[in-house]
Computed example of a mutant assay.
Amino acid sequence: MAAASLDLPERVIVTGGTSGIGRACAELFAAAGCGVGIISRSQQRADAVAAELAATSSGTVFVAAADVADETGMQAAIDQLAGELGGVDALIVSAGIAGETGALLGTATVDGFRQVMETNVVGAFIAVNCALPYLTESPDGSIVLLGSDSGFVAVPGMIAYNASKGAIVQLTRALATEAWERRGIRVNSVAPSIVDTPMARHDLGDELMDDPPFPLQSPQDVAWSVAYLSSRQARAVNGTTLLSDFGFAGRSSFPA
């Protein structure tokens, strides 16, 4: 099935759009002919990705540099991209960090915990706040947040990450209730299990990721879920977190 099979938004902004899931989302929307705005902390990296997408897709790609936890920088970036795109129909919030992976209770630091929450949760709220005026003007405004199955199940050594992704589940509901009733904007999230991204490989190691003892999904798998939730075919879906974990969270603890 081609991306064109979905009735996708015409103007999309993706945070964290230069790597992993964010990049896969940017690639999918650009390949479908959408106008795409990418926000990255690195202008150089964003420019390189934009050049690659421009050479391989029919969509128009613009870039801006900002840290998602910096409200002033994010407002400037979204204002810039909205102007270049001629508006915003969908916001994909993919930027995130894992934090102190492997740090157990008693060794995990307050500063590390705070940094993860600032990026993964406060950063998501800032992105939504900054894009809200433009999404309100769209006839089909949509927001998709990137969560994780860690919002439903906990992994030792990832206290801050687990907490941040649990917050994304409830943030999705809270935003959806207000955004739809007051502004006609849908808000959903996707919560994948382990995805083969540079961040996951950094945390888990290439050896484990190359021969994993668990089901592994690609960034493109997640991008398709994001595309569906942002499409007009999903117009009745709001406040939902799509858990894509091969069914593991639904398993009973009974040894059968």
Results as ranks from 00 to 15, higher is better:
residue 36 V to T: 07
residue 60 T to K: 13
residue 185 I to S: 03
residue 95 A to N: 10
residue 216 L to R: 08
residue 127 A to L: 03
residue 74 M to N: 00
residue 137 E to N: 13
residue 4 A to E: 15
residue 195 V to L: 02
residue 162 N to A: 04
residue 189 S to Y: 01
residue 79 D to H: 10
residue 118 E to Y: 05
residue 53 L to A: 06
residue 13 I to D: 04
residue 177 T to Q: 09
residue 36 V to C: 03
residue 217 Q to F: 11
residue 96 G to K: 04
residue 80 Q to T: 14
residue 35 G to N: 02
residue 202 H to R: 14
residue 209 M to S: 10
residue 125 F to D: 00
residue 214 F to D: 09
residue 221 D to W: 10
residue 233 Q to A: 12
residue 200 A to M: 11
residue 14 V to I: 15
residue 31 A to N: 07
residue 231 S to E: 01
residue 125 F to R: 13
residue 124 A to G: 14
residue 136 T to S: 12
residue 121 V to S: 02
residue 191 A to C: 12
residue 246 F to I: 01
residue 66 A to P: 10
residue 114 R to Q: 13
residue 29 F to H: 03
residue 91 L to I: 08
residue 159 I to G: 08
residue 220 Q to P: 04
residue 198 P to K: 05
residue 168 I to M: 06
residue 11 R to T: 10
residue 94 S to C: 15
residue 48 A to R: 12
residue 189 S to F: 01
residue 201 R to G: 07
residue 179 A to N: 06
residue 198 P to T: 06
residue 164 S to R: 02
residue 166 G to V: 08
residue 105 L to D: 08
residue 18 T to R: 12
residue 48 A to K: 11
residue 21 I to G: 03
residue 100 E to P: 15
residue 54 A to L: 10
residue 249 A to F: 12
residue 179 A to P: 01
residue 193 S to F: 04
residue 28 L to F: 11
residue 127 A to T: 08
residue 113 F to G: 03
residue 214 F to Q: 10
residue 224 W to H: 13
residue 66 A to W: 06
residue 166 G to Y: 03
residue 200 A to V: 05
residue 165 K to G: 05
residue 64 A to S: 12
residue 227 A to I: 07
residue 133 P to Q: 11
residue 161 Y to A: 05
residue 214 F to G: 11
residue 212 P to L: 12
residue 115 Q to M: 12
residue 243 L to M: 05
residue 142 S to C: 14
residue 159 I to T: 13
residue 208 L to R: 09
residue 105 L to E: 11
residue 104 L to K: 13
residue 153 V to W: 01
residue 180 W to V: 07
residue 134 Y to M: 02
residue 133 P to V: 09
residue 157 G to T: 07
residue 30 A to Q: 05
residue 202 H to Y: 04
residue 126 I to P: 00
residue 228 Y to D: 01
residue 25 C to G: 05
residue 53 L to V: 09
residue 135 L to T: 05
residue 6 L to K: 08
residue 18 T to Q: 06
residue 219 P to F: 05
residue 222 V to M: 08
residue 102 G to D: 07
residue 85 L to M: 04
